[in-house]
Amino acid sequence: MESGVRFYSVDEFRLDPKWLIDPKHLFVGPQIGEGAHAKVYEGKYKNQTVAIKIVHKGETADDIAKREGRFAREVAMLSRVQHKNLVKFIGACKEPVMVIVTELLLGGTLRKYLLNMRPKCLDRHVAIGFALDIARAMECLHSHGIIHRDLKPGNNLVYFLLIN
């Protein structure tokens, strides 16, 4: 069994040219989220509305190296794993800052959805649907040797089809 610790070659940290985006085509709009290592903004890439994750560089050389490694692993994972229940990867760039661009899902997080429902309870069939969608996404990741490690309602996006 693998320990999860892995060393990466210089080539693994290079971004595949087909996923490189030109930062000149990015328009960064309002902030929609923030984590320990990055901020996420709504924005535009060319004519598409997207989510733009800007990764903090870090302060020390060790911190910078760790964040670059995390960025490279995330881009590698996003570029090779596609599933209808996973956010669609559009591209990334490393300069002038580390940026990951994905589709923007406007439904918000599962956490926000559940909080907004209060005091009502979630319908059993809807809950089962959410659980199955999350399980299918995790199965896809696991089949590629990826463990999410931070699975929680705040990290699950809800997508609603708007039918007129």
Rank of each mutant, 00 (worst) to 15 (best):
L15H: 10
Q48W: 13
Q82V: 09
H148V: 08
R136V: 05
R118I: 06
Y113I: 06
L122S: 10
R124W: 14
P23K: 04
I128C: 11
V81E: 03
K66W: 01
I64R: 07
K24Y: 00
C140F: 08
W19C: 02
G4L: 09
A38Y: 07
E103P: 05
F71Q: 04
L110Y: 01
H37D: 11
D150K: 03
G35L: 07
S79G: 15
K53F: 08
L78C: 11
N155S: 03
L110W: 01
D63P: 08
H125K: 15
N85M: 01
I100C: 07
A38D: 04
K24S: 10
L151S: 05
Q31G: 01
A127S: 11
Y45S: 03
V55P: 00
E2V: 10
R14K: 15
P119T: 11
P23I: 00
G33P: 03
H144E: 10
L157F: 10
F7Q: 12
P96V: 07
E2M: 09
E95H: 11
P30E: 13
K53Q: 08
P17Q: 14
Y41H: 12
A61T: 10
F160W: 10
G33K: 06
I147Q: 05
L106H: 14
V126G: 00
L105T: 03
I134D: 02
V101M: 02
R73S: 09
K57F: 01
Q48N: 11
V97M: 10
K18Q: 14
A137D: 07
K112Y: 00
L105N: 09
R118K: 14
K44G: 01
A72S: 15
Y45Q: 04
L151N: 12
I134W: 01
K112A: 11
V5L: 15
L26M: 05
T109V: 10
K112H: 09
N116Y: 02
D16Y: 11
L162H: 07
F71D: 00
Q48M: 15
N164P: 15
I52R: 06
E103M: 09
H148A: 05
S3D: 13
K88M: 03
A92N: 02
E103W: 06
Y113Q: 06
V10C: 03
V75Y: 01
Y113P: 03
K66S: 01
M138P: 00
V50L: 04
C121D: 14
R136S: 13
F89G: 09
Q48C: 08
L141T: 07
Y41C: 02
G107K: 11
K84W: 00
V5M: 15
G43K: 06
V87R: 00
L86F: 10
V87F: 02
L162P: 02
E12D: 15
Q31T: 09
K84P: 00
L104H: 04
M138I: 15
V40D: 00
S9I: 05
L132P: 00
D63L: 11
L114Y: 02
E34V: 12
L26K: 01
L15T: 06
E59N: 14
K152L: 10
K94V: 08
I21H: 10
R149W: 07
P17N: 14
T60L: 08
K18M: 12
G69P: 08
